[in-house]
């Protein structure tokens, strides 16, 4: 009798028994924090328009998330910050020139937020079930629907209150249309080109321009162990290799990998988009395959495709393969023996 009494006092719970204090919302807020330097640089170079566009994306993402939860009667998880992060990433992937009333293009960020939150994330089952990166689908939808509005690039003004800006081509646009020589000519010399690309003083989407700020955010995430090196390094490495081998005109091995690495959305994509937990493989060796695939596809689109930039489509295409990669690299169960089929037949 005594024994059963003791048994009743035991607390029975399922594993895991050791838990860390990491939560979804904490991760989301930390990643948002890591994006702050790049965001600040975007605001510095593109002025109040950049702020309005990003704010519009964040607010409409939050509103759509909350409204969807309300309509379908699910418990609201808007506070976990995932919609906020999606909105922030979406805003950072849009050109600041969208804040324009004639022609009217302010609806573009709102529709893109709807596609990102409702269609890409919620209709597939909410956070954790989405096949594709929501922010990237939102941007892809906008780019395909409004190709003109999404590719008007403002020249960086570096003035906080400037509402007017000249439009210009992005470095990758110039690289695609006129080649590296013209690009160097625009910025003076090669060092000046690198400097402009690193600091973010160039045309582009709001949050993608400053390679240094993005790198700071990425290294912060690495240091906090929120991401591992596998995806960014394999992504950037394979892209650099491709750029070096095939990027030159005429001869092989004459390309400039550095220009490709620090222009376009490469840094933002490699550190913040491709590393999304939900849409990338969870095994380390799978992540390397994923990263290499992203890098190769990006460079294939940049060098041979119709668009000057390929990071977005490359990551989206690899997103489809993430579950397949995870299946392919599944490690052997410890202690399991490979079945010998010839023996079975003998029996």
């Amino acid at each position: 009798m005594e024994a059963t009494k003791k048994e009743n006092n035991l607390i029975v719970s399922v594993s895991p028994h050791v838990k860390s204090d990491e939560t979804t919302s904490r991760i989301m807020w930390t990643v948002s924090l890591a994006l702050l330097p790049a965001m600040a640089s975007g605001l510095y170079f593109f002025g109040p328009k950049a702020f309005f566009i990003t704010a519009l994306c964040i607010v409409s993402s939050l509103v759509f998330e909350q409204a969807y939860m309300k309509i379908v009667g699910k418990k609201s998880v808007t506070g976990d910050g995932s919609a906020l992060l999606t909105g922030l990433l979406l805003g950072m992937n849009m050109p600041a020139s969208l804040w324009s009333f004639s022609p009217f293009t302010v609806h573009v960020p709102i529709v893109a937020s709807f596609v990102a939150i409702v269609i890409t994330k919620q209709l597939f089952g909410g956070l954790g079930f989405n096949v594709f990166n929501p922010a990237l689908i939102g941007r892809a939808f906008a780019l395909i629907s409004w190709p003109k509005a999404m590719t008007i690039w403002n020249e960086p003004t570096a003035a906080f209150l400037a509402m007017d800006a000249k439009t210009t081509a992005t470095p990758l646009g110039v690289l695609k249309e006129e080649g590296i020589a013209k690009l160097i000519e625009i910025f003076g010399d090669k060092m000046s080109l690198y400097q402009h690309l690193l600091t973010g003083n160039r045309a582009g989407s709001i949050g993608e321009t400053s390679a240094i700020a993005l790198l700071i955010g990425g290294i912060f995430l690495l240091a906090k162990r929120y991401i591992t090196w596998h995806i960014p390094v394999s992504f950037l490495g394979s892209a650099a290799l491709m750029a070096w081998v095939f990027g030159g005109k005429g001869a092989l091995f004459t390309g400039d990998p550095i220009v490709h690495l620090i222009s376009g959305g490469m840094m933002l994509g490699a550190w913040f988009m491709a590393t999304d937990y939900v849409t990338s493989p969870s095994m380390k060796n799978g992540q390397i395959i994923f990263g290499v695939g992203c890098g190769l596809l990006t460079m294939l689109i940049r060098l041979k495709g119709g668009y000057p930039e390929g990071v977005m489509f490359a990551i989206l295409i690899m997103n489809c393969f993430a579950p397949l990669i995870d299946r392919g690299v599944r490690s052997k169960v410890f202690g399991a023996v490979k079945q010998d089929k010839s023996k079975e037949i003998k029996k």
């Binding site: 022609p103 939808f141 395909i144 190709p147």
Partner: peptide, 11 residues
Amino acid sequence: TKPLLILILPA
């Protein structure tokens, strides 16, 4: 107005 171009594409 500016149409939602994606709808006439296959996607």
